[in-house]
């Protein structure tokens, strides 16, 4: 019984990172009905950006802020250049573009920063880039690398890491904040209006392009938060980290009800817990398949996801 509680608690922390990524999937789908498969790569690029910024000697809040702005603007540019010209071209074209962008980013990062896992403090790989850029990186031994809190709560046999609690709390507050933003503020209501009925929203004066850019920006910024947390918790950043986390976050978004903000959090947590349960009962090999197994079962029973509202589609 105690084991079970332990796995549930551990699952919350793992699921929180999925949830932070899933929020971006969910928001973009809400306004554009587009599954942005390149979203997992924004998470990866964010993790790299923050890692290098911290390795340059910047304090972590500055590094995080810069990372959110940079990756956010990058996502906006991506939308303007790659998705916007395809509006009205059906749903398949942007979807394939998203898959292509995802592969492009993975390989681009691999080509520039090297295919091998990086740990804090990050180094520039050998080559031209290193000669040009490497001189600006301070000596690693001189650097104070910030890290997540490493304390423990320890009751009898139940062990909770402070950093797990921190990640969980951040995920909950970010979700609440996002939900408040969407309900209470003018730009937030604009996003909801677009999601509900794009043409009517345009008629009543919601700035269409601006609102979509904002959606991409927010989603990417949240992915950077997830990238920082995961990169620091694991002390490892790789060009492929967006693939598995991105896919699971996508599964989480669909599971919770894509387009519904609290659904992304719930979906992430459910997947995280399922994963930890499998590992706990010594079935870790099946852990990655589990996410999709659960997804299939839930979609069979509730096609709109756990928190999604069934919507009539007018033909």
């Amino acid at each position: 019984m105690f084991d079970l509680i332990q796995y549930l608690v551990d699952g919350l922390a793992v699921g929180s990172v999925y949830a932070l990524i899933a929020l971006g999937y969910s928001m973009v789908f809400g306004v554009l009905q587009l599954v942005n498969f390149a979203h997992g790569e924004l998470f990866m690029v964010g993790a790299y950006f923050v890692m290098y910024a911290i390795s340059l000697g910047l304090p972590w809040p500055v590094a995080l802020g810069l990372g959110m702005c940079f990756v956010g603007l990058f996502a906006v540019a991506m939308e303007r250049l790659c998705y916007k010209p395809l509006r009205g071209a059906g749903k398949l074209a942007p979807l394939i573009t998203a898959v292509g962008l995802s592969l492009l980013l993975q390989n681009l990062v691999q080509a520039i920063l090297g295919p091998n896992p990086q740990s804090y403090p990050a180094r520039v790989p050998e080559g031209k880039l290193s000669q040009f850029f490497g001189q600006y990186l301070p000596d690693p031994s001189q650097l104070q690398i910030p890290h997540l809190p490493d304390g423990l709560f320890d009751w009898n046999d139940l062990v909770i890491r402070h950093r797990d609690l921190m990640i969980f709390t951040i995920a909950v507050f970010v979700t609440l904040g996002l939900e408040l933003f969407l309900r209470k503020t003018r730009p937030g209501r604009g996003i909801r209006a677009l999601a509900l009925q794009p043409n009517a929203a345009k008629l009543v004066g919601v700035p269409f392009d601006f609102t979509i850019s904002m959606t991409f920006f927010i989603g990417a910024a949240l992915a950077v938060v997830a990238g920082l947390l995961q990169g620091m918790a694991d002390n490892q950043v790789t060009p492929y980290m967006g693939i598995s986390s991105g896919l699971k976050a996508f599964a989480a978004a669909v599971l919770g009800g894509i387009g519904v903000i609290p659904g992304a959090l719930l979906g992430g947590l459910v997947l995280g817990i399922a994963e930890r349960l499998l590992v706990g009962y010594d079935l870790s090999t099946y852990k990655d398949g589990a996410a999709f197994f659960i997804l299939i079962i839930v979609l069979l029973l509730r096609p709109q996801g756990l928190l999604g509202k069934a919507r009539m589609v007018k033909v």
């Binding site: 332990q6 796995y7 793992v14 694991d234």
Partner: peptide
Amino acid sequence: VISYSQKDRDFKTQLIKVRK
């Protein structure tokens, strides 16, 4: 005798068993 996967990043669940 506890297994993990090469795709794992978080080993807390396995390590808690050992710790106990």
